[in-house]
């Protein structure tokens, strides 16, 4: 009896402080087990030379397999790593085109004509279908022999260009495929943004004689800023995560020229010919570090905005 009273009073006095933690606990535990712990584990693995088979479990790794920063040193001496890094940079820069193109399409579709809903859904379609399908479609599009683009290039220039067989063009070919769904994503973000535009401001600006680009730049865009921010965030992260398309369209080829870090990691650690778990973990950590730069910046911006508003 007395005990329960003590218990009750403890709960009563601390209820306000404890309740949020109780509600947060399930999510936090999940996050800890499935995100934080694996990150720490894979950083740990990156210090070992391990093939994932012997010893059978991470806990059995000994000083025999320990190589310290050896994997990272090897990475700095690996041409494939620089190819992947450089390709990631190409992805990052060119993927950004999705934001302005998405904005353009959104502005174009933001009108009231019969059947506009159909057009909107057609433009949004590539984002709904799987990346695997997008990759297959584009690789057929480029395919030597029967691909439409291949036929077009041949009829214009007379040369037989297979984009995915060329080490200089293949990466751009894949990025173009990636831009298709990404543009649709940015478009939908902007379309929702455009719905929330204050019509009175636009009206007022019109009365003051603002038209066309001036109106867009000074009145519309500032109001779309939250949409732009999200569009940039998802595009940056999307470009760094690029894996599906590379895997489907070229498998990193021809001769490794379309590798990106995430695919390079998969190749080294998990693919048919890859058994270097430690090396793969080291690549994963480098990719993680690069992502962290962007993510920290975005979080910082978000916190700042929240404070200002």
């Amino acid at each position: 009896m007395a005990q329960q009273a003590v218990h009750n009073s403890f709960w009563k006095t601390n209820q306000k402080a404890l309740a949020p933690w109780l509600f947060l606990a399930p999510g936090m535990i999940m996050f800890l087990v499935y995100v934080i712990f694996p990150i720490i584990e894979s950083i740990y693995i990156s210090f070992f030379n391990w093939d994932g088979l012997a010893p059978a479990h991470i806990s059995q790794l000994t000083s025999k397999e320990y190589v310290g920063l050896g994997n990272y040193r090897d990475l700095l001496d690996d041409d494939s790593f620089y190819t992947s890094l450089w390709n990631n940079l190409k992805w990052l820069v060119l993927y950004m085109l999705a934001v302005p193109i998405g904005l353009f399409v959104a502005l174009f579709l933001n009108q009231k004509v019969p059947g506009i809903r159909l057009y909107k859904s057609l433009f949004f379609f590539p984002f709904v279908i799987s990346q695997v399908v997008v990759g297959l479609l584009f690789s057929w599009f480029y395919a030597p022999g029967f691909g439409p683009l291949y036929a077009i290039i041949k009829s214009i220039t007379g040369s037989e260009t297979a984009i995915l067989a060329s080490d200089t063009m293949a990466t751009y070919g894949i990025i173009l495929a990636g831009l298709w769904p990404q543009t649709a994503y940015c478009m939908i973000l902007y379309l929702t943004g455009l719905n929330n535009i204050n019509p009175e401001q636009v009206e007022a600006a019109r009365m003051d004689g603002a038209r066309g680009l001036t109106l867009l730049w000074n009145i519309i865009l500032p109001q779309l800023r939250p949409a732009t921010f999200i569009a940039i965030v998802v595009t940056v992260i999307g470009s760094l995560r690029s894996f599906d398309l590379v895997s489907i369209m070229t498998g990193g080829g021809p001769y490794g020229s379309t590798r990106v870090l995430s695919y390079f990691m998969f190749e080294q650690a998990l693919s048919e010919y890859g058994t270097a778990m430690g090396y793969g973990a080291a690549i994963a950590f480098v990719l993680f570090a690069i992502m962290m730069i962007f993510i920290s910046f975005f979080i910082y911006r978000m916190l700042q905005q929240e404070r200002n508003s």
Binding site: A143, A165, T250, G253, Y255
Partner: peptide
Amino acid sequence: ANAAAIDWQD
């Protein structure tokens, strides 16, 4: 030419 872009069946 373009052997790198096609599967063995092609």
